[in-house]
Amino acid sequence: MRVGLFVTCLIDLMRPEIGFSVIKLIEGAGFEVVVPPAQTCCGQPAYNSGDRRLARELAEKTLREFEQFDYVVVPSGSCGGMIRVHYGDLFGDDPELMNRFGRLRGKVFELTDFLVNVAKVQLQPGEFAGQVTTYHDSCSGLRELGVKAQPRELLAQVGVAVTEMKGCEHCCGFGGTFAVKYGDISTAIVDEKCANIAETGAGTVVLGDLGCMLNIEGRLRRKGDSTTRVLHIAQVLAGDV
């Protein structure tokens, strides 16, 4: 079966190695992976900023490029949530688009949800096995897509011990344009997240959304923490760390 990989803007532009880890995982589960070369943004920044016209254009573009596949996998809770949850709002006045979106919606999965509930993978322990980590639940993945147990199940499969941090479900302060509009509030939120990570004594924080990853890693480094690793879960599961 063919999987369309929605790479996401941040992975494409800032950490493309995560995309290659995602491909390795999906192909390892027995699926053909296709990356539509013309894909761009899912429309979330425009949508969150109130530019519904641009968000609608990007949503229609994404629909055209991905509706052909058996599944669509997104290694980001925020982009996955935008597609599965909010496209319906953008297409609500167009019955044809709503019908096409209805057929697409059930095929769209966040990466760990796909690996657990569709591919039903059984991964083998790798070099990261036994290392103590903590896990940050991204807001969109958790609250819009129900991603909570899936990443922890996969980490257990590869032998990674998760030490839960206080407030693991709390926002990291990124929130896309929120971090730009409300910098002081964003900084206070991520400072609390960094403190909670440090309290666990874990040497690595793992997560499933690159926006959160960049925000947490950036703040840790600015606060003088040069040793705590911040990794996308695809990198850990694929053994690319």
Rank of each mutant, 00 (worst) to 15 (best):
M1W: 13
R2E: 14
R2T: 15
G4A: 05
L5K: 02
F6Q: 02
T8M: 08
L10Y: 13
I11Q: 07
D12H: 14
P16F: 01
P16V: 00
I18N: 10
G19V: 02
F20G: 05
F20E: 12
K24G: 10
E27T: 15
G28S: 13
A29Q: 05
F31L: 00
E32R: 14
E32P: 07
E32H: 13
V35L: 14
P36Q: 09
P37N: 07
P37S: 12
C41H: 03
C42A: 10
A46V: 08
Y47H: 12
R53G: 09
L54A: 11
R56F: 13
R56M: 10
K61G: 00
T62W: 05
T62P: 02
L63T: 03
E65H: 10
F66M: 08
E67K: 15
F69W: 13
D70H: 09
Y71P: 06
V74M: 06
S76G: 07
S76F: 02
C79A: 09
G81Q: 04
H86S: 09
H86I: 06
L90V: 07
F91L: 04
G92Q: 15
D93W: 08
E96Q: 13
M98I: 07
M98W: 03
N99C: 05
R100S: 06
F101M: 06
R103V: 07
R105P: 08
G106L: 08
E110M: 05
D113F: 06
L115T: 04
L115R: 03
N117Q: 13
N117S: 12
V118H: 09
K120A: 07
K120I: 03
V121K: 12
V121D: 09
P125F: 08
Q131T: 13
Q131R: 15
T134P: 00
Y135F: 14
L142H: 12
E144F: 15
Q150A: 05
R152Y: 01
L155I: 00
L155T: 00
L155K: 00
Q157R: 08
V158N: 00
V160W: 04
M165P: 00
K166M: 06
G167P: 11
E169L: 11
C171R: 00
G173V: 01
G175N: 01
T177E: 05
A179N: 05
G183E: 13
I185L: 14
S186M: 07
E192N: 14
E192Q: 15
E192T: 15
A195W: 07
N196L: 04
I197P: 01
T200H: 08
G201T: 12
G201E: 07
V205I: 12
N215E: 09
I216R: 01
G218C: 14
L220V: 14
R222N: 10
R222Y: 13
K223I: 04
G224A: 03
S226C: 02
T228E: 05
R229E: 12
V230P: 01
H232F: 11
H232R: 15
H232L: 10
G239E: 05
